[in-house]
């Protein structure tokens, strides 16, 4: 059990990464009064009834810039590309976009910010998407062998 949790040189990066995500969500809420839910921020860009789009672009550019910075400064190689096949990439992307839009949030919005507000909706959502993620791995990897 211990080995599974602490394996690899990346353990400290993993924990510090988590703290930084929490710090970012804290900043956005404390200063701007906004929830750091990435799909909500991103999908708002394509919603005509949403007026303030600039900060959304800036936040998303920051996500990309932050990843570039980290790999420049830290001794961490870029992860290798996903080895998913074309149909899996396309259906995976579609389901993530569709599901998070219908379900009003993703890992950051429900999993981090929502749980921290003790939102019932977010707790249920997080339990469901993790459970279905785990069951899907069982189905697609171990029973069907397609991922």
């Amino acid at each position: 059990m211990f080995e599974v949790l602490f394996s690899g040189v990346n353990f400290y990066y993993t924990l510090i990464g988590g703290f930084l995500i929490g710090l970012s969500a804290t900043m956005l809420l404390l200063f701007n009064g906004r929830i750091a839910g990435v799909c909500g921020i991103a999908f708002g860009l394509f919603n005509q009834s949403v007026g303030d789009k600039l900060w959304r672009w800036l936040f998303l550019s920051g996500l990309v810039g932050g990843a570039i910075l980290l790999h420049l400064l830290a001794d961490l190689p870029d992860p290798s590309p996903s080895n998913a096949s074309l149909p899996i990439l396309i259906s995976g992307g579609f389901l993530v976009g569709f599901g998070t839009q219908v379900g009003s949030g993703c890992t950051s919005g429900h999993g981090v910010c929502g749980i921290s507000r003790f939102s019932n909706r977010s707790i249920i959502s997080t339990l469901l998407f993790i459970t279905f993620g785990v069951l899907s791995m069982l189905l697609f990897r171990h029973l069907m062998g397609i991922i």
């Binding site: 993993t14 510090i16 990464g17 988590g18 703290f19 930084l20 900043m27 996500l63 990843a67 980290l70």
Partner: peptide, 13 residues
């Protein structure tokens, strides 16, 4: 906050 979030995501794996 986007930058800090992006650094966190990339660092964490």
């Amino acid at each position: 906050s986007g930058l800090v979030f992006g650094i966190g995501l990339a660092a964490s794996g």
